[in-house]
Design a protein around this nucleic acid. Structure first.
Lengths: 210, 210
DNA sequence: CTAACGTTTGTCCAATCGGTCAAAAATTTG
DNA sequence: CAAATTTTTGACCGATTGGACAAACGTTAG
């Protein structure tokens, strides 16, 4: 075994497949699945359409591979949410990590958003399975913190939703955010502003009444 | 003049155009612009494709009409945000109104989200113009409340973003929300749960330190 | 009735779609 | 080197796309 991946592949196949997936991420994330064409992806990857189809038989195969890889990376921050540390610190760093992902991987966020928006036809089983299991597990952790009086009592699931929504907003709605903030405040500093705001919003809202 | 609209139109034209727009809202909001076909819209509207094209010359015309109408309705809650009442009450009812729109007009929300996700190619001028103006105006109102000590000091723009994000999340990511909450908690009551959670999150976070 | 007008449809078109295939080109292997 | 294998490409296919168009149909006014 030369690699960690399933099928036996040459070095060229590894590289070209990676090239295609990178191009497909760009195209799919801005046009959605049905709105993207193989030609677009092929051109973005710098190869001919039949050549691309030599590495991925069908358009759906590219999208599927992309989504599988995505979900792992995407849920990593939530997996790290741990029962060990201080609850407020844990939540604060979860929010920070999630916001950093929105900043550093906006295309992945938009790819995911596109899929969900259109009814998640290709990843629904993952949502109801793997994702629900993970969220339920972490919701139980958060509930434990509430029972221990470490954070204010509220709905853990909706708390997680609100963290997802507020952080991913800066990736998915980036165009709108920049348009509204204008050239000055919409520059590179907007993520630091967002981080400061979100920290205040969530922490002061979650702080137990003493 | 028989109507309030621009061009002179017969009664049948008014009705059929409305029928088409309703069908197009359904199709565009779930497939995006490029992912939707005229045939799909025509079938959903119960008419033939050439017949549909008799009322709207181009596919883009339907989308454009839809977006123009949408923006007014969509920004209505924010326009109502007023300097008159009690600041915390004003913000709380803004959040409630926005959440009600996510519940009652999810297709409109998804249509808008689709457009923004794909870089807002068709409504960018509106974002940088009308929308920015309105948000800046309301941000000034909120800033006034902060200066008066009525609510905690924070970034008004990002506060508005966070309200948009958290409320629209229940329309745009509805599939995911229901999948994660499961059959019991994901039923009709999920919006009331969300309303309770959001009220707690925002109000306790915005309450001035006394 | 008929003429005028508004509405609907069947047919057609060029462009584009996802995908195939055989052959050429490049690379690896002996 | 030559043979075997992998990679790349041009040409092509049927299906679907957005849209055009003239003919047919329905309705109403005189």
């Amino acid at each position: 075994m030369t690699s960690t991946d399933h099928p036996r592949r040459t070095r060229i196949q590894q590289e070209k497949r990676e090239l295609i997936l990178e191009a497909a991420l760009e195209v799919f994330s801005t046009n959605g699945f049905r709105g993207s064409t193989i030609d677009q992806i092929a051109e973005a990857a710098g190869m001919s359409k039949p050549n691309l189809l030599y590495y991925f038989r069908r358009k759906e195969d590219i999208h599927e591979t992309l989504m599988q890889r995505l979900l792992d990376t995407w849920l990593a921050p939530l997996r790290e949410l741990d029962d060990i540390g201080d609850p407020l610190t844990e939540l604060r760093s979860y929010i920070r990590r999630k916001l950093e992902m929105a900043r550093d991987f906006p295309r992945e966020s938009r790819l995911f958003a596109n899929e969900i928006l259109q009814g998640a036809p290709r990843i629904m089983p993952l949502l109801a399975g793997e994702l629900k299991t993970l969220v339920d597990e972490k919701a139980a952790v958060i509930r434990g913190w509430m029972r221990a009086g470490k954070i204010a009592r509220t709905d853990p699931w909706h708390l997680i939703f609100s963290i997802w929504a507020t952080t991913q907003h800066y990736a998915d709605f980036d165009v709108q955010v920049r348009a509204v903030l204008g050239p000055n405040r919409g520059g590179d500093g907007r993520f630091e502003d967002a981080a400061r705001f979100l920290e205040q919003l969530f922490l002061d809202g979650l702080k137990p009444k003493t």
